[in-house]
Simulated scan of single mutants.
Amino acid sequence: MLRDNVDFDSLTTPFSTNEIDAVVNEMPPDRAPGLDGFNGAFLKACWPVIKDDFYRLCAEFHEAINDAMHNNNLHLPIPSGRNNQFPVIQYADDTIIVMPACRVQANCMKQILTDYADSVGLHINFHKSTLIPLNTPEETYKDIADIFGCACAQLPFMYLGLPLGTSKPTVLNLTHWICKAERRITAAMSLMSYAGKLALMNSLVTSLTI
């Protein structure tokens, strides 16, 4: 559900230096390095030296998308007269891009993503991405999927562990989540005594909404 008075315009503003600094500060220092060989500890240690270049890189990425929109290479999925910025929305390492079903715009967006990945020494696994068509002819969305080199799926789809769609999820849509919870509960109960199992079951039953 959406709260009232949400500032959706904040989704289209450029990345601030405070946001970028917060991301770097929260990076685990001991994780495996990326393709460039640098891990979180290196970035944190060298951040005072490289941060200005990184700020410019993020600004150029945001500018490239908006320049493409201003040049009519990209269009907003839902027309709006409130601002002239293209929304860039990301949660952790999961990104959803909402675009019109247009082959020209698909080629433009892939080029922007590829150029950005090349500039930071990363690699985008397009084959791990999924195209979710909505009211789009099969021939069109298959052509767009070929442009990105990704698979096609249908609504509802799983995002951050929950089903997303245009209608209320059914019990069948929640089966994956239910089975996952059941496996965890079964594994935990195998290590419990009879009294512990009874206490857990009482807690689960009393927490159910009737």
Score class of each variant (00 low, 15 high):
D36H: 07
N71K: 15
A45W: 00
P28G: 01
K44M: 09
D36Y: 06
C58T: 10
G37T: 12
G34M: 03
K44S: 11
M27D: 07
H75F: 10
E26V: 00
P29K: 11
E63G: 07
W47F: 03
A64H: 01
I65C: 11
A41I: 07
P14Q: 11
E19Y: 04
D21M: 03
D36V: 05
A59E: 13
G34P: 03
N72M: 08
L43K: 03
G34Y: 12
N71D: 12
P14V: 14
H75E: 14
A68T: 15
A41V: 05
A68W: 10
A32P: 13
F15W: 09
T17L: 05
E19D: 02
Y55G: 06
H70E: 14
G37S: 07
M27L: 13
I65R: 01
G34A: 09
P29F: 05
L74G: 01
P28Y: 01
A59T: 02
F42G: 02
W47C: 07
L74V: 00
I65M: 04
A32R: 14
L74K: 00
C58M: 13
L43V: 04
D53N: 15
V49G: 03
E60S: 13
R56M: 08
F15M: 15
R31F: 14
R31C: 11
C46Y: 03
K51L: 05
L74E: 05
R56G: 03
P14I: 06
D52N: 13
F42N: 00
D30E: 09
P33D: 08
A68P: 11
W47P: 07
H70M: 08
L57Y: 11
F42H: 13
G37V: 11
A68M: 09
F15D: 13
H75A: 11
R56H: 13
P33G: 12
P28E: 09
S16H: 12
P29C: 12
A64P: 05
N72R: 10
P29N: 11
V23W: 04
F54L: 08
P48E: 09
L35S: 12
C58E: 07
I20Q: 00
